[in-house]
Simulated scan of single mutants.
Amino acid sequence: MNSVIIREITSKDNREVARVIRKVLEDMGVPKVGTAYADKALDCMSETYSREGACYFVLEVDGHVLGGAGIAQLDNFDGNVCELQKMYFLDQVRGKGWGRKMMEVCLSKAKELGYDQCYLETMPYMEDAQKLYKKVGFQYIDAPLGDTGHYSCPVWMLKKL
C-alpha cells in the first residue's frame, strides 16, 4: 500500500463503492433483505450523501476504493442524532487501523455538522466492528432509534458527541 487516503466520495466512485459494500455483505453472510444490501442508495452513493447534514468518505488505496463510511441524519427520528452508515472495508484493509481512522473522520464531521449523538446498527456476529465501536465510545442500547429500514440488524449502539 503506497498511497492511502480518506476523502469524500465523488460520483466516479459510485460503482466501486456499491461493489465493495455488496462484496463485504456477501462475504459476511448478511441477509440481502432488511440490511444495507437492499438499499437503493448503494448505486448512487455520492448523490445520496450530497444532501445537507450528510457526508460519505471512501478509503482509497493506490487509486482503488477499498472501503468507506458515512454519516447522515437518522431517518424518522425527532432529535439531533446522526447515523453512522455503510461502514465496510474489504479484507485486505481490515485490521490495519483504517476503520478507527475512518470512524474518527466521520465522528469529527458529525460534530462539525452539529449533531449531538451518533447511532448505528449492526449484526451480532460483526464482533470486530463492535469492539471498535465500543473503543470509540459507543454503548449498546435496548431498542432501535428511528426507522432505518434495516430490520434485520438487531444490535443498536449510541454515542454522545
Rank of each mutant, 00 (worst) to 15 (best):
M1S: 02
N2T: 05
V4I: 14
I5G: 03
I6E: 05
R7C: 08
K12N: 08
D13A: 00
R15N: 07
R15I: 05
V20Q: 03
I21G: 00
R22M: 09
V24E: 00
D27G: 11
M28K: 11
V30G: 04
P31N: 12
P31V: 11
K32S: 05
T35C: 11
A36G: 10
A38Y: 11
L42C: 04
M45F: 04
S46E: 14
E47L: 08
E47R: 12
Y49W: 03
Y49N: 06
Y49V: 05
S50W: 01
V58R: 13
V58G: 02
V58A: 03
L59G: 01
E60I: 07
E60S: 08
D62Q: 06
G63N: 11
G63R: 08
H64P: 01
V65A: 09
V65K: 09
L66S: 01
G68Q: 02
A69T: 02
G70M: 00
I71L: 05
D75R: 04
D78N: 15
N80V: 02
C82L: 09
E83C: 03
Q85C: 14
M87Q: 06
M87F: 08
M87L: 13
M87D: 04
Y88I: 14
Y88P: 00
F89S: 13
L90E: 15
V93N: 08
G97P: 14
K101L: 15
K101T: 14
M102N: 12
M103R: 01
L107M: 14
Y115S: 06
Y115P: 03
Y115A: 08
Y115T: 07
D116G: 04
Q117D: 10
Q117F: 06
Q117S: 09
L120M: 02
L120C: 02
E121W: 01
T122S: 11
T122K: 09
P124V: 01
Y125V: 00
K134R: 15
K134G: 12
V136R: 09
G137P: 12
G137D: 11
F138K: 12
F138I: 09
F138V: 09
I141P: 06
A143M: 13
L145F: 13
G146Q: 07
G146V: 13
G146Y: 06
D147W: 13
D147K: 15
C153A: 07
C153H: 02
W156E: 01
W156F: 15
W156N: 05
K159P: 01
K160I: 08
K160H: 14
L161V: 10
